[in-house]
Computed example of a mutant assay.
Amino acid sequence: MKFNHRIGLIVLLQICLFSITCWGIIPPLKEKSKDKRPLIVFVAGDHEYSGESTLPLLADILEKNYGFRTKVLKSYPDQNAEKNIPGLEVLAEADLAVFFLRWRLLPADQVAMIDAYVKSGKPVMGFRTTTHSFNYPKGDPLESYNAWAETTFGAPPGWGGKSKHTHYGHNASTDASVIPSASKHPILTGVAPNFHVRSWLYRVLPDYPVKGTEWLIMGKAVNPDKTAEDQPIAWTWVNPYKGRVFFTTMGHPEDFSVEAFQRLIVNAIHWELGKKVPKNWAGKLDINIPYRGMK
């Protein structure tokens, strides 16, 4: 039998490639994930409202009941650690990013990963203290990010300041009412027209939410510590980067045990991802996290 030099050369090359790959000279090709389910990345880092506890429970339900993939990122080593949220690299793969932040001082490389996601035009969702996500000192190179919520969510640009963004006292709570003109919005499918949440009402008017937002729900302060005006507490928007936005100033941990609020959030996640909002609701979700305050 004649030796076929061409076949022999091909076999030799294959053996060589296999060998050097095994020895680590050439890394094996990384297979792309075959999982086509939308990826939702939750980013938690607030001192007060236990986002690091409520968001993982919500993520688990979204995976089990609604067919999403989720990843939860948390401030490390705990909610009071303002300078590190490991794993933000995964935002590059995310289809939706959900933020629950408060006065972080993240390093520039981590802020850059958040910034790149938002500027990609992908959808964003924010809860409560995300209006004041960052708290860099005056003169810091990242000081402008203290107003990040304005361009990202159409929310007030940080706490206090010219917008006088504040609340009506920790002993207050909020009566929530669907705005009649918005009642047909898909996010409000099956949401009770009136419900009560523990969140004390945030003041955002008169200048916020920004022009072009669509208000969905108004809040009325119950037992306020000062004269209170009704305020929008949930809205949608398309931000300057063409990303769909859902924002709510609700987010107290006890809010997550309220069925109307639960359905609002599940609906909003579907809407932001361009998915049909579920008409059928399986019932109240098991999310019961007590308020811990600042610890």
Rank of each mutant, 00 (worst) to 15 (best):
P180K: 05
P180Q: 05
P180R: 04
P180V: 12
S181T: 15
S181G: 09
S181E: 12
S181D: 15
A182H: 07
A182W: 07
S183E: 11
S183W: 00
K184A: 14
K184T: 13
H185V: 14
H185D: 14
H185N: 13
I187E: 02
L188T: 02
L188C: 07
L188K: 00
T189P: 11
T189R: 10
T189H: 09
G190C: 11
V191S: 06
A192L: 07
A192S: 13
P193F: 02
P193H: 02
P193L: 03
P193Y: 00
N194R: 13
N194T: 12
F195A: 02
H196S: 04
V197N: 00
V197R: 01
V197F: 02
R198Q: 07
R198T: 07
R198A: 07
R198P: 05
R198Y: 01
R198V: 09
S199F: 01
W200T: 15
W200C: 09
L201G: 04
Y202V: 14
Y202D: 15
Y202R: 10
R203Y: 09
R203L: 14
V204M: 13
V204R: 07
L205W: 05
P206V: 13
P206M: 15
P206A: 13
D207N: 14
D207Y: 10
Y208D: 07
Y208G: 09
Y208Q: 09
P209V: 06
V210Q: 13
V210R: 15
V210S: 12
K211P: 09
K211A: 13
G212I: 10
G212P: 12
T213D: 08
T213L: 12
E214I: 13
E214F: 03
W215I: 15
W215G: 06
W215C: 10
L216P: 06
I217K: 00
M218L: 13
M218Q: 15
M218W: 08
G219R: 00
K220W: 00
K220F: 02
K220L: 03
A221S: 11
A221L: 05
V222M: 04
V222I: 14
N223F: 10
P224A: 05
D225C: 02
D225V: 07
K226T: 12
T227P: 12
A228Q: 06
A228F: 06
A228S: 15
A228V: 11
E229M: 06
E229N: 08
D230P: 15
Q231E: 14
P232L: 00
P232Y: 01
P232Q: 04
P232V: 04
P232T: 01
P232H: 02
I233V: 14
I233K: 02
A234N: 06
W235S: 08
T236K: 02
W237Q: 10
W237H: 13
W237E: 09
W237C: 11
W237N: 09
V238D: 06
V238W: 00
V238F: 00
V238H: 03
N239Y: 03
N239E: 05
P240K: 15
K242M: 05
K242H: 11
G243A: 04
R244P: 04
R244Y: 00
V245F: 03
V245R: 08
V245N: 07
F246I: 11
F246C: 05
T248M: 03
T248Y: 02
T249P: 08
T249E: 04
M250T: 02
G251N: 08
